[in-house]
């Protein structure tokens, strides 16, 4: 636990100085941090609790829309609308999970796509609610303590805070009762019930927390984009991207999703000129590599090797 908190401290320290050192590479760093936060939130449900969702873009979209509409229509500051989005996302996740958690494995994943697609269609078609297919534009933002929220630096710190809070949440949960309940349900529901754990309630809690955290990142994303289009923010591809980031990095590990975000966004940037819009090709290739050769993901595999080595050492000594 202390080890992980030190890691988080290092991340924050590096993060605080980053804008001063690389003032021209802020946009990509924001991407990495947002994806790290989203994938880590996804992993609470997908990795720690074993329920693979392919609909998390819904919560990103929800956060972004709350912030954009709150600001443009009602003049509400982003921090209020983010809190509202988180609450609403948790409520949505509750009903969504209540509806779909009777399904297991691939059927659950399929149902998440269907729900997310229906939400996307609502966002596109209900103009009174979402501004319709043309989207919503954020023209003004408040300036707390004189900070310009349109500046990339301010947005970078928001994204950094978001990623850090989500990772800290997972660090705490991984050691706590709830973290063990999550894993017990993932491993074997019958066995979990024999330990007095309610599998459905556990999944619902995980889904609600995961959704709420994701939507806060979505709110920051809304500020970063300043212009929100439903087909971009509710895209199936974004849901897939979030899930694959966590899985490639290492499901059910504290740092896996963040490492996944760094690797995937980094690789996307490196091949940006080669692949242009086709940068999801990297996700496709890497997920195949992971499924075939590194089923635990990057960090999961490293952790396993580390444990093996410790064992070997202990056996010798």
């Amino acid at each position: 636990m202390t080890k992980h908190l030190i890691g988080l401290g290092v991340l924050l320290a590096v993060g605080m100085t980053y804008p001063a050192i690389f003032p021209n590479n802020l946009t990509i760093a924001i991407s990495v941090l947002l994806f790290a936060g989203w994938a880590t939130s996804w992993d609470l449900l997908g990795g720690w609790n074993g329920q693979v969702s392919l609909g998390h873009a819904s919560f990103v979209g929800l956060g972004a829309y709350f912030v954009a509409i709150g600001q443009s229509q009602f003049g509400l500051a982003p921090w209020w609308t983010m809190a509202m989005a988180a609450a609403f996302a948790a409520i949505l996740a509750y009903f969504w999970g209540w509806l779909t958690f009777s399904l297991r494995g691939p059927y659950f994943s399929l149902s998440t796509i269907a729900v997310a697609e229906i939400l996307r269609l609502v966002a596109i078609n209900e103009e009174w609610l979402s501004g319709g297919a043309t989207g919503v534009f954020i023209a003004t933002l408040p300036e707390p303590f004189g900070i310009d929220l349109f500046s990339r630096t301010a947005q970078f710190y928001m994204a950094l805070a978001f990623a850090a809070v989500v990772i800290a949440t997972v660090i705490v949960i991984s050691r706590a009762r709830f973290g063990y309940q999550l894993r017990a349900v993932r491993e074997d529901e019958d066995s979990a019930m024999a330990a007095g754990i309610d599998p459905t309630a556990t999944k619902l809690k995980a889904f609600m927390l995961s959704a709420a955290l994701t939507s806060i990142g979505g709110g920051i994303y809304g500020v970063v984009l300043a212009f929100i289009e439903p087909h971009v923010i509710f895209a199936l591809l974004l849901s897939v991207q979030i899930a694959l980031t966590a899985i490639i990095g290492g499901r059910g590990t504290i740092w896996g999703p963040a490492v996944g975000a760094l690797v995937l966004i980094g690789a996307g940037e490196m091949f940006r000129t080669t692949f242009a819009e086709a940068n999801m090709l990297i996700y496709g290739i890497l997920i195949l590599v992971v499924v075939l050769f590194v089923p635990r993901g990057i960090v999961g595999e490293l952790a396993r090797r580390h444990i093996r080595r410790l064992y070997a050492k202990r056996a010798q000594g």
Partner: peptide
């Protein structure tokens, strides 16, 4: 996941 990769 493998077929998802193939799809991408």
């Amino acid at each position: 996941l493998a077929t998802l990769g193939i799809s991408l």
